[in-house]
């Protein structure tokens, strides 16, 4: 036991007692209710207790006054990516959005992700995303080393582990202009699957070549690097800088580098 830890504990004992988290108050909410045939915002009012997140509020409203209010959730710890919705117009995980991040008199508006078709209330049909993943050429590993193991360096692994942190909450897909406003779902797989592609393409053991498909079927050219996806990522993945831009560069190297172009014309590779 260090002196420092004792001091920290003493401070913690004191601090928590008068934490601002303790206040209980009534708050107002507007929640979109309806299904694919239409709907409207409905007002709710309920008590907020210390430390609550938006998902807690939804559970409370379900138990108190709207038993059939539809919302998706699972882990309630920011690990599964189920409870995505638009909170005051911003795509967020409701389990990681703390009530004390809003002003005390602010009405909080909850609505479903705009980019995907509505199922009911706050739940949308995200099956389009599952179809995109199925389209992508899966991992194809090289053979193991003679002793039956694979070897990878820490640096190589860390680079793709960033992308593999993705919890598939699809907030990046929701906010992507190509998918959200430009009706580009037939042409572009979206940021989530660009970093999925990056995790495969940069995987030290992978042998498949997805560059032609990244350019054509997966539509890398549609992303115009506004970085909105990176901003909303709850896992703080550098989607644009570390994932999408390097893939765009690989496409450019392959198709638009004059030396490579001549080589391809002559040798057909």
């Amino acid at each position: 036991m260090t002196v420092r830890a004792i001091l920290v504990i003493a401070r913690l004992n004191g601090r928590i007692q008068d934490s601002p988290l303790q206040k209980i108050m009534k708050r107002n909410f507007k929640i979109w209710r309806g299904d694919k045939n239409g709907g409207q915002f409905v007002d709710y009012r309920t008590n907020i207790e210390p430390g609550m997140v938006v998902l807690d509020v939804l559970h409370r409203i379900q138990a108190e006054s709207a038993g059939d209010l539809a919302c998706r959730w699972n882990c309630k710890a920011g690990k599964c990516g189920s409870c995505s919705m638009e909170i005051n117009g911003k795509p967020r995980l409701s389990c990681m959005t703390r009530m004390n991040s809003f002003k005390e008199d602010e009405t909080i508006t909850l609505q479903p992700l705009k980019t995907f078709p509505i199922m009911r209330d706050l739940v949308t049909d995200v099956s389009w995303n599952y179809r995109q993943k199925e389209k992508i050429v899966p991992f194809r590993p090289k053979p193991r080393d003679a002793d039956g193991n694979y070897r990878m360096t820490r640096d190589d692994v860390e680079r793709i582990q960033e992308f593999r942190k993705c919890i598939e909450c699809y907030l990046c897909q929701d906010v992507c202009h190509v998918l959200r406003d430009q009706g580009g779902k037939d042409q572009f797989v979206g940021p989530r699957f660009m970093i999925y592609l990056a995790s495969l393409e940069m995987h030290p053991l992978d042998t498949a070549d997805r560059i032609p498909a990244i350019r054509k079927e997966y539509g890398s050219g549609f992303c115009n690097i506004t970085k909105c996806c990176t901003e909303v990522c709850p896992e703080h993945i550098n989607i644009t800088d570390n994932g999408i831009i390097p893939l765009k560069e690989r496409v450019v190297d392959r198709y638009f580098d004059p030396v490579m172009w001549v080589k391809r014309k002559i040798f057909g590779v």
């Binding site: 899966p138 590993p141 193991r144 193991n149 070897r151 692994v157 582990q161 593999r164 995987h203």
Partner: peptide, 18 residues
């Protein structure tokens, strides 16, 4: 090891093993 063959990316030892 089979998971690794299916794409899992575990943390590595200095020699590159899981």
């Amino acid at each position: 090891r089979e998971l690794e063959e299916w794409g899992a990316v575990f943390d590595r030892t200095l020699s590159g093993l899981i």
